[in-house]
């Protein structure tokens, strides 16, 4: 139990470092802005209490905000995604998944399931984040373009990361 907590804590720090030090410096162009830190919230256990997800999302948002000097932006988007995650899992995960102690990952749910899971939630997060940042519908199609390209890029990095840390522990 304690080991789990420490693992998650280190994972949390690692992912935030990765986002702030490396991914934030990928300056390809203004249309591609990947935000991969949401993978921490995506990777929380399925049977975790919903309020814990919300609080963790909120803390993640506060940290991201203070490192990108955008008060409130990441908080709002990440909490929104954390809330949607519960709904998505209720629909997409089977009953035994919800009761068993598993985490949403490629090794436990398969690549296609995880791709859909990551894509839909990251899309929701980016949609919220980018529209809140631009804060107008005047450049609607440009913003939508940025959302789609950034989401694709984020999901690609998240999938790569998942494959890199793939553990073949299929037996339960």
């Amino acid at each position: 139990m304690i080991i789990d907590l420490i693992t998650y804590f280190l994972r949390f720090i690692g992912i935030l470092f990765l986002q702030i030090l490396i991914v934030n410096n990928i300056e390809l162009n203004t249309y591609i802005n990947p935000f991969i830190y949401v993978i921490f919230i995506l990777g929380l256990p399925v049977n975790i209490k919903p309020w814990k997800v919300l609080v963790i999302s909120f803390i993640t948002g506060v940290i991201m905000d203070s490192f990108s000097s955008t008060p409130g932006l990441h908080m709002a988007a990440t909490v929104f995604m954390g809330y949607l995650r519960g709904f998505y899992l209720k629909i997409a995960a089977s009953k035994e998944d919800l009761e068993g102690n598993i985490t949403p990952s490629i090794s436990q749910k398969g690549p296609i399931w995880f791709l859909f899971y990551a894509f839909i939630l990251v899309l929701a997060h980016h949609f919220f984040l980018f529209f809140l940042e631009v804060y107008s519908f005047r450049e609607f199609f440009r913003t939508v373009m940025r959302i789609i390209l950034s989401t694709t890029f984020s999901v690609a990095i998240i999938m790569l990361g998942e494959l890199l840390f793939y553990k073949s522990v299929k037996q339960r």
């Binding site: 919903p50 309020w51 919300l54 609080v55 999302s57 909120f58 948002g61 008060p71 409130g72 932006l73 908080m75 709002a76 909490v79 929104f80 954390g82 809330y83 519960g86 809140l132």
Partner: peptide, 18 residues
């Protein structure tokens, strides 16, 4: 309570944002 917590946190974020 999940929805209420979500609502409260989201409100807080928006207040900070504005």
């Amino acid at each position: 309570y999940t929805f209420l917590l979500f609502f409260a946190l989201e409100m807080f974020s928006f207040i900070v944002l504005y």
